[in-house]
Nucleic acid binder design. Structure first.
Lengths: 251, 251
DNA sequence: TATGGCCTTTGATCCACGTCAATTCACAGC
DNA sequence: GCTGTGAATTGACGTGGATCAAAGGCCATA
């Protein structure tokens, strides 16, 4: 194990069971939450080992090819991570809001495989690997757990959705909206009315669709009374209807 | 950390650096190897803690919903794992040959999310979790490492290929063949001529295509002199040509 | 050698989504 | 207020792959 990051510093009173639960099995319909930390947990953590940093819209947290030495936790704001392919294509691999971690996919590799960009003025906790000392077994377990959860989540949150070549555009968009809605709800925001921070193009990249298709499906959803969209503002009117679309399979 | 599986029993002279290297970054073109163990490593391991079991064609190693208490390593033969969705759809999530591990995705969850089925008469090493004692830090690292590698691989080997909504059928098939070829080569088999163990339908399920499409693309590859196919026998004639197809993007 | 059950191939058609293109809209700067 | 710029919408059209359907091949068993 020559990974740079061998363990987390111990922070005894941070409640970690939360991470655990995020790991429990979930159905396709109810796409589960990404790994996250509760607000109090974040506060605890950044008092102790982490530094906070403001980031501006468009600023990169890390980029492919840079040496990779920190883990990032979104404190406020909104981020995306994207994958770059050698032939120039790129794909958004995730959107990240307060409490969510970014940078796990670089661990254990010299180079990481993702870019992370702020979609709006935001704040992150920066967690430099070299300040994470291998002090306790408990924290080794935590690190271990991070990996486990993260990897599961990558596969889950994105994979399950995308692996299905069979999934149609409506299905993907519906799942996407429900997922966002749920994540916002657990953060105390309204699950039924919110602001998409990303463009149609970014959504499309994430879901494997073109921006025009995303736009068209949004319009169709609106006609059918499932949602109300105006630019980036979305109001979910008939969540049940969306849920029915997910898992419907080919029309 | 109440995971059933807390650490591996230590087996000092097993060379684990192999796992590490599988983790190193790889490009889309050269889809990297799945996690595997070398033959000597396998021998060492199953002498010590593991039991071997023969499995017949069509037999299940584990199934969704069963209590999950072991890890499996393909010893000989060929396996597939598949994901079942609540609405009845299912998708092949991977094919596994000698030395490859199955069952990692159940770790930490009460239920696992996959089925594993033997595609032909095979043999597996069964690694019951309750025989994996938490004895050494080193082995905790190994377990940790397993997770890391596995999760990366899931995302890599399948994810990278599939996440790309943009990937066309030819691209997927080409990547699939090259991947198989490479895995066989590292096991001492001919990389240019081999026997597909799975049906067109299973390939299609794995790649998000229909069996007819798989068949058509194989035929087209043959016409273009890239490969020679006859039923399940494949001979790669122009590997370079296949490699060019991967990463080409939309026609 | 015949029979039945897959698996595979190939053709014909259909449709969801990509592509190209033309407006329209929101918002920032002046 | 105007104006410029990038985002979003909407239409027209083309196409890759799904779907439906019909043969043909391989192999096991009788």
């Amino acid at each position: 194990m020559s990974s740079k990051m061998t363990a987390f510093k111990i922070v005894p009173d941070v409640n970690l069971s939360r991470l655990k639960t995020a790991c429990s099995s979930c159905s396709l319909r109810e796409l589960c939450l990404p790994v996250d930390l509760r607000e109090e947990e974040m506060d605890k953590l950044d008092e102790l080992v982490f530094t906070r940093r403001p980031v501006k819209r468009g600023e990169y947290l890390f980029r492919v090819g840079e040496s990779f030495d920190s883990l990032y936790a979104a404190r406020t704001g909104f981020f995306k991570t994207k994958l770059l392919l050698e032939d120039g294509r790129e794909q958004v691999t995730g959107f990240h809001m307060a409490g969510e971690l970014m940078g796990m996919d670089g661990i254990g590799t010299e180079k990481h495989t993702c870019d992370a960009v702020a979609l709006e003025d935001s704040e992150v906790c920066v967690i430099p690997f070299d300040r994470l000392e291998s002090l306790s077994r408990e924290m080794e377990a935590l690190q271990h757990h991070f990996h486990k959860v993260m990897s599961r989540e990558i596969v889950r949150e994105h994979g399950v959705m995308m692996l299905l070549g069979s999934m149609r555009a409506e299905e993907r968009l519906a799942a996407f909206l429900l997922n966002l809605s749920q994540r916002l709800q657990t953060r105390g925001y309204s699950p039924s009315e919110f602001n998409l921070r990303m463009t149609r193009e970014e959504i499309g990249s994430y879901l494997g669709l073109k921006l025009e298709t995303v736009s068209r499906v949004f319009s169709r959803f609106q006609e059918e009374g499932l949602i109300a969209v105006q630019q980036k503002n979305v109001r979910i009117i008939n969540a049940g209807g969306l849920r029915e679309l997910v898992g419907k399979g080919p029309a």
